[in-house]
């Protein structure tokens, strides 16, 4: 109950605490006196170490969040879930031959998917998790890789799945296979690597190294990624996939 002084009440593992509103769940847990030795990592929403399950007043649902990215609410009943056990058959990426059944071979439990979509509804990244598992099931490694691109392996999906699928490990293998075997090579990369190896940029690099930090930062912020012909689209292996957090968004940011 909010007390008018900006304090709200949350429950952590069954015990009530008064904490200031406006804190993230993670900060609220620390405010309540806990020291997080597990279940906390980058604190920036990227590492996937702080999955949280919670309930709210007035709903029968279990909600999910990253503790570092979500504000604590009055009446939240929280539990931290730092780890979902993961057992996979070891694989040697160099020995894998991408075939329709490759993902199914390593993760046969994906055949148990009932398409309930609980995984997608629980994903704090808002990914179409069920759809990438379905793509994996039918051997569409590229689609599985693209739709899972922004997965941070927090494991909430796997904790909620009635078929006990290890979604994040499936997506990871799909992306590894895609990166090693299927991704179309960036057209300029090989040429640029050869130029660097041949020493063409040695003088420029030496000049950069001697720059002051502020100047270096300014140059960094003005950098470009690919040489693009006038009027042409910049190269992107992922553009045709419409993930809600499209991996090529950075280009829009640069443009703006």
């Amino acid at each position: 109950m909010s007390d008018g002084n900006g304090l709200i009440t949350m429950q952590l593992m069954g015990k009530s605490y008064q904490v200031p509103s406006g804190l993230t769940i993670m900060a609220a847990i620390e405010y309540a006196g806990y020291k997080l030795v597990r279940g906390a990592g980058c604190r920036g929403g990227f590492c996937g170490a702080c999955p949280t399950l919670y309930r709210r007043d007035g709903s029968h649902r279990i909600f999910t969040a990253l503790a570092c990215q979500t504000l604590v609410e009055d009446g939240m009943c929280l539990v931290q879930m730092p780890f979902v056990p993961l057992l996979t058959r070891p694989y040697d990426l160099h020995a894998i031959v991408p075939q329709p059944n490759t993902l199914l071979q390593h993760f046969p439990e994906i055949a148990g998917c009932v398409a309930c979509n609980t995984c997608a509804r629980s994903c704090p990244q808002g990914l179409p998790v069920m759809d990438y598992i379905q793509a994996a099931l039918r051997g569409d490694i590229e689609r599985a890789a693209m739709l899972s691109f922004d997965c941070i392996a927090c494991g909430i999906c796997s904790s909620r799945c009635p078929a006990d699928i290890k979604h994040y490990a499936v997506g990871l293998l799909a992306r590894r296979i895609y990166g090693k075997y299927l991704a179309p090579p960036a057209p300029d990369l090989a040429r640029r690597v050869a130029e660097i190896a041949a020493g063409r940029y040695d003088a420029e690099l030496d000049a950069l190294i001697s720059l002051p930090a502020a100047e270096l930062r300014a140059r960094y912020e003005q950098r470009s990624f690919e040489a693009v012909a006038d009027g042409a689209e910049p190269y992107s292996a992922t553009r045709r996939y419409n993930s809600p957090m499209d991996p090529v968004d950075y280009q829009d940011e640069l443009a703006g």
Partner: peptide, 20 residues
Amino acid sequence: VAQLPAATLRDLPPIALVAS
């Protein structure tokens, strides 16, 4: 399912595994 031989899994049509 975790104990099915890799060779079986490599060749099976997905429908066989889903149905099973």
